[in-house]
């Protein structure tokens, strides 16, 4: 067997929901433990590092605001990849992944908006402004809610998957807009100081807790995503079994009617 076909076989092995359930059952407790560990270290660093000379204590809001904002965009990127998986490769788990990532992404976006607002009030003097960065992230939040509503409105999961996959891919245009909004427009929100071509401009004292918290948030996302995908697979199994049971009951009733005649 060639190396390529072996790789394809492994990929399609994972596409089997039963295999996915077996594999994820082994993986998730380790990921949950790693998440807890990184949060413990991260939160310790959050409160043991010094405050900023200008921002004082409020700089600590950055350690949750920035990772949450990154994750809100990464989650959407995961959904866009899953949407491609649905439309191009027809991977059976792709729409399960896209559907279950949406509520998680909405929560991370919500955290980014709330903590940003609570940081904006003492630092900018306002809870909210309709500048390009804040508005584009708010649009992202609305898109997450829209996708959740769409998935709930369509009963047939395969039909919902196709419609939402197209919507996800169209909405992906918002991700570079969010990232570059601070460069393209004059915003109250500051431009990037960590992910930039010439390297981070932020002091290592603040970068250390930020990186650990970013890893913790990423691990949290993937742990919850895997668990939510498991739930969705079980939900579809329940639906299939109920259909089978209803069909069997229908056949049984028809057979009884026949004998009564």
């Amino acid at each position: 067997m060639s190396e390529q076909s072996l790789a394809i076989r492994k990929f399609s092995d994972l596409a089997n929901p039963t295999r996915f359930l077996a594999l994820s059952a082994i993986v998730w407790p380790w990921m949950a433990a790693a998440t807890a560990l990184f949060f413990a270290i991260g939160l310790y660093l959050c409160f043991s590092t010094v405050g900023d000379y200008q921002q004082g204590e409020t700089v600590r809001i950055m350690y949750i605001h920035v990772p949450a904002a990154w994750l809100s965009m990464m989650c959407y990127s995961v959904m866009a990849l899953s949407a491609l998986g649905t439309l191009v490769w027809r991977h059976p788990l792709a729409d399960v992944s896209a559907k279950m990532a949406a509520p998680i992404g909405a929560c991370f976006t919500f955290i980014a908006l709330i903590t940003g607002s609570l940081w904006g009030k003492p630092m900018w003097g306002t809870w909210w402004v309709w500048d390009a960065r804040l508005t584009s992230v708010f649009v992202l939040f609305l898109m997450y809610l829209g996708l959740i509503a769409l998935n709930r409105a369509v009963d047939d999961p395969t039909r919902a998957a196709r419609v939402s996959a197209i919507l996800i891919l169209v909405g992906f245009v918002n991700i570079p807009i969010i990232k570059f909004s601070v460069d393209w427009w004059n915003t109250l929100h500051q431009p990037a100081s960590v992910i930039r071509l010439d390297g981070p401009t932020i002091d290592p004292e603040f970068l250390r807790p930020l990186v650990v918290m970013a890893i913790a948030f990423t691990l949290l996302f993937f742990t919850l995503h895997i668990l939510a995908m498991r739930n969705e697979i079980l939900r579809r199994r329940v639906a299939t079994l109920r259909r089978l049971a209803a069909r069997a009951a229908g056949h049984g009733a028809a057979a009884r009617e026949e004998t009564l005649r």
Binding site: G56, E57, T58, R60, I61, I64, H65, A68, P103, I104, C107, F110, I111, I114, T115, L118, W119, K121, P122, L220, L224, L227, A228, R230, N231, L234, R235
Partner: peptide, 28 residues
């Protein structure tokens, strides 16, 4: 004061994550 804003931000993040974990657990 600043500490109140920091506490409110961490509390909001904690409650949101807790709700998310609770949803995944109860759904499963």
């Amino acid at each position: 004061n600043h500490a109140t804003y920091v506490a409110a931000a961490y509390a909001a993040a904690f409650l949101t994550v807790a709700a998310l974990i609770l949803w995944v657990w109860l759904d499963g």
